[in-house]
């Protein structure tokens, strides 16, 4: 089918896999004493998040993280590096640590002076390795029974109609 390609590119996360991911993210926050962590796919969609951050809109931070990671990757390409795998921005109070997990995903970790970059770096490396493994297994697994309901598309269209009523 013509759109087979598009359909296989869809990123699907099953409950089983994400349960494990959430657990790992929670453990990481405790170990590294970081404030919050976002798992974002490379296209800019938020996959899951843990921890509290008052004013951060998770959708917006995801789009920005994916965007700046993509830009960094392009920079690496221009410089002849394979890929920069870690990015770090230091603020006055809060800092953000961004790293590549697998081909598909990125973590963004927000932390303050309760901890250090070194700690975050150390634990995030461990986390990254574990997450990579989960995604690897997940991608090889046969299609699961979880599915979208058949009339989902039509229902969304109706919702859009409602929303766009002037």
């Amino acid at each position: 089918m013509k759109d087979e390609h598009l359909r296989t590119k869809r990123l699907v996360y099953y409950t089983e896999d994400l349960g494990l991911v959430d657990k790992l993210l929670g453990e990481f926050l405790k170990l590294a004493s970081a404030k919050s962590i976002y798992l974002v796919d490379k296209d800019g969609h938020l996959v899951t998040q843990k921890g509290h951050s008052q004013s951060i809109n998770p959708e917006t931070i995801s789009a920005l993280v994916a965007g700046s990671f993509a830009a960094t990757k392009e920079m690496a390409r221009v410089l002849g590096e394979a890929e920069f795998t870690v990015m770090f921005h230091q603020g006055k109070k809060d800092h953000i640590h961004i790293s590549l997990v697998s081909e598909r995903a990125i973590t963004a970790i927000v932390f303050d002076d309760q901890t250090t970059v070194g700690m975050v770096n150390l634990y995030s490396k461990e986390l990254t390795a574990k997450l990579g493994k989960i995604f690897d297994i997940a991608s090889k697994r046969a299609v699961q029974k979880e599915q979208i309901e058949e009339d989902y598309s039509d229902s969304v269209k109706e919702r859009l109609d409602d929303m766009f009523k002037d």
Binding site: L11, V12, Y13, D17, L18, D41, D43, L46, T48, Q144
Partner: peptide, 14 residues
């Protein structure tokens, strides 16, 4: 597109 059954979420990029 992301289909996230754990969070019961579909997210499309336009």
């Amino acid at each position: 597109m992301q289909i996230n059954y754990a969070k019961k979420e579909v997210s499309c990029k336009l």
